[in-house]
Simulated assay, not measured.
Amino acid sequence: MKKWGKVSLTLLVAIILVIASACGNKTNNNNSANSEASNNAAAEASTSPEASGNSELDALKGKKVALVMQFNTGTFSSQYVEGVKEQVEKFGGSVQVFASDNDLAKMSSNLDAAVNQGFDGILIDHGQAGALEQGIKKAQAKGIKVVVFDADVKIDGVPVLQQDNKSMAELTLEQLAKDAGGKGNIVKVWVAGFAPMERRQLAYKDFQAKYPDIKEIAAFGNANNPAMDTQAQMEAILKQYPNKGDITAVWAAWDEFAKGAARAIQQAGRTEIKVYGIDMSDEDLQMIQDKNSPWVASAAVDPKDIGRVQVRTLYKEFKGEPNDPILVLNAVYVSRDALPAEQVSTTQLSQYVDGWGSSTQNYEDWMKELEGSK
């Protein structure tokens, strides 16, 4: 009995060890299989479109954009900046503004700073080719995308936006001629050295040839502190020509010029003189709607739209999509006669002026998705 008991006990222990070993192997195999399955599932999830999103659009998020401006004077410029910031932020990026106080040397330095600080893209507002081209080429060498507005820059791979400056000048000058009956004495407020001004001057020369009985009796313009300087100079001209009928109208090639001229004329009580301007902002619109103001009309592109379109053009560059070398922004004519008695803002202007605001130029379908996923 004792001998058999020992054998039985030994066999029992051995059987238990074999069973335990088999169970352990099965558990380990199951754990290993489960772990591998989990790893595979995670890998599949990370590469699936649902998990990863649109990698092309993801690459466009978080872009840092520099806006290098020749000047940021007046409400037109401030609304343009609002348009830039609004569109960049909708795309999930950020903007830093470099204002140059109408100093081309400072503008060139600001452009170099933007290049050296490693922005993803640079927007340029006005300026001259001589001050900009070297910096733009440095940006290109570093892979930084550049889009220019209203500067006479001609560099391969750099899109240039410009207002339809010739059309804007023609719209205002033709209305001036019509209102004046094709004859009279006018004052021109204009300044050289700016690409849009130079284009507007070409239309003005054509106007002079077309209407020889409309005589220019004075011409001036200063881009530094333009509204105040224009007001002071216009006051002096009004003293030089003190009689009603001496001056028929003022043609101002920039809204800041129109503001100054209109204020001088209104304060002098010479509201028989009409002012025709170019560009439009909320402040300009208030003046045009004022029935006591001599400023009766302006031709313009919505400044916020200019900023938005310039940003969209930049993001097409980021994505590697083609852009036209020159993109012309369509202008409209805004006259007091077309506006309601109650005060309106530029955001409401589309209700009264066909073609104003809400431009879809360079707005691609994928941009809607980018705006919705930031």
Rank of each mutant, 00 (worst) to 15 (best):
M197L: 14
M287I: 15
W4Y: 12
L176I: 02
A43M: 14
G181F: 06
G184C: 00
Q240Y: 13
Q117P: 08
N40F: 14
T230W: 06
D229Q: 15
F76E: 08
K368C: 09
M69H: 05
R199T: 04
D103K: 05
M1I: 13
E86H: 11
Q208F: 07
Q70M: 12
Q240A: 15
K319N: 11
W366G: 10
E371N: 12
A169W: 00
Q96P: 04
L104H: 11
K304H: 09
P242K: 15
N165Y: 04
N323E: 02
A262F: 06
V95S: 06
I15S: 13
R308V: 09
Q348V: 12
N102V: 08
T346P: 02
Q289R: 06
Y211E: 11
L285W: 03
E50C: 08
F119E: 00
K374P: 00
A297Q: 03
M367R: 05
S359M: 11
L314N: 08
A299C: 12
V97S: 08
T248H: 05
Q267D: 15
R312V: 04
L17M: 14
E86A: 13
S100G: 05
Y276K: 01
G372F: 13
K368I: 13
I237Y: 05
S298A: 11
G92I: 00
W366H: 08
P303D: 03
V18E: 08
N72P: 02
K304D: 10
L132V: 05
P294W: 02
G24S: 07
W366F: 07
A20R: 10
K215R: 05
A43D: 15
A113N: 14
D324G: 08
G130L: 11
P294Q: 02
A252T: 08
D255F: 10
L329V: 07
Q175A: 12
A141N: 05
V334E: 04
A253N: 09
N30V: 13
L67Y: 00
Q87S: 01
G157T: 09
K166W: 10
K291C: 10
A169S: 04
A300L: 08
V309Q: 01
T75E: 14
Q348I: 13
D229S: 13
E321H: 02
T346I: 15
S350C: 07
R270W: 07
Q310H: 03
A59F: 12
E216W: 12
T360K: 09
L339V: 11
V88L: 02
A253K: 06
Q343G: 02
L60I: 09
S100R: 03
I186W: 01
K368P: 04
A258K: 00
S38H: 11
D365T: 08
D337V: 10
G277C: 03
V301P: 01
D246M: 13
L123T: 00
T27K: 10
Y80F: 15
E86K: 11
P49Y: 14
K2F: 09
Y211G: 06
Y204T: 05
E216S: 14
I122P: 00
N29D: 06
F220N: 09
A252P: 01
A99Y: 00
Q240F: 11
L111N: 03
